[in-house]
């Protein structure tokens, strides 16, 4: 198996799907001659031509709006929002239009659209290059939301998302792009949307997380293993549909849940996960469900201290796991 970065796995999924299916095309800012700000699509314009690698103005509502129309007309557009921080102008096109098309047309139309966007902090991106947007979208029925964290999951899920007949918001944590390397199976590799990954098994505490925090949680779990605390780490991979079964099976085993995400706490993914546990597994719980999340402040600051204060770190995750294990 080849070892790749997350960034390369995005590139490979896009490239192989474009080779495989002529209805797949890309739209976004700076994806043509510039090859995307992270160089993901470098060379794509020469290889696939202007019709399939469409450079757009700085107009997110138009990028997604045009992609919705193309998707309804039989194409499989992959629209890129350069940074998740700029997705808000396209909120109506994603939530108000794309997510409702199948339902609104009683199944007569579908919208096989992927909106990809880098999100998250930890790269000194300051107020407008650090945001996590998943909680704004996972509430919406009709929209799938993926947030993988490893190269294999990224390539497998992005391939599934492009082949999916309904709209998928595909979130790529920008800190993982070059930081995280891993093996990716060769050939036509897919990962099913809606299935979590048990990244590590343990019997004392379940950590339910996704994105960059999966890697931080794994680091914390390794530290604690030396102290005799066995942590189970669940990487949701898909935020919606959410894999309730894997979550509940894990709680049935450890009886203690810690939910970790970088996104702000109030109304975040952790709120839904803890509600699922409370509704379905109250009598399995041996401790209160805990959340370790970003603080409820408007944004991640530029200063290193602000960024560190915002993002859960392996050390803080380890402390939270230990507190639950000792409870």
């Amino acid at each position: 198996m080849a070892v790749k970065t997350v960034l390369e796995s995005v590139r490979d999924a896009l490239h192989s799907e474009m080779e495989r299916d002529p209805s797949v095309f890309l739209m976004g800012e700076d994806i043509g001659p510039r090859g995307n700000v992270f160089r993901i699509t470098a060379g794509f314009l020469d290889e696939f031509g202007r019709d399939r690698v469409v450079d757009t103005p700085l107009a997110e509502a138009s990028i997604v709006g045009i992609a919705v129309g193309a998707a309804m007309a039989g194409m499989r557009p992959v629209a890129e929002i350069q940074f998740a921080d700029f997705i808000y102008p396209a909120y109506n096109q994603i939530v108000g239009e794309a997510a409702k098309i199948r339902y609104r047309s009683a199944g007569g139309n579908s919208c096989p659209l992927v909106v990809r966007t880098p999100y998250g902090g930890g790269v000194r991106g300051a107020l407008s290059h650090s945001v996590s947007v998943e909680a704004l979208f996972y509430h919406v029925p009709g929209l799938k939301v993926c947030a993988p964290s490893t190269p294999a999951d990224t390539q497998g899920l992005l391939t599934s998302a492009i082949r999916d007949d309904d709209p998928v918001l595909f979130l790529e944590h920008k800190r993982t792009y070059r930081l995280i390397k891993g093996e990716v199976p060769a050939g036509d590799y897919t990962v099913p949307i809606g299935k979590a990954d048990v990244a590590r098994t343990g019997k004392d505490v379940s950590v339910i997380t996704y994105g960059l925090m999966r890697h931080f949680a794994m680091e914390a779990a390794e530290q604690l293993a030396g102290q005799g605390i066995e942590t189970e780490v669940i990487d949701l991979r898909s935020i919606r549909p959410m894999d309730r079964e894997t979550i509940l099976n894990s709680i049935g085993k450890t009886r203690k849940a810690l939910i970790v995400h970088e996104d702000q706490k109030f109304g975040g993914i952790g709120a839904e996960v803890s509600a699922i546990i409370a509704e379905e597994a109250l009598f399995e719980l041996d401790a209160p469900v805990k959340r370790l999340c970003g603080p409820d402040v408007p944004a991640m600051g530029y200063a290193k201290e602000y960024e560190e204060a915002f993002m859960p770190s392996p050390a803080r995750i380890a402390d939270a796991i230990k507190a639950l294990a000792d409870f």
Partner: peptide, 8 residues
């Protein structure tokens, strides 16, 4: 006080 898991 006992947790729900203990009581079960």
């Amino acid at each position: 006080r006992y947790s729900p898991a203990v009581r079960k």
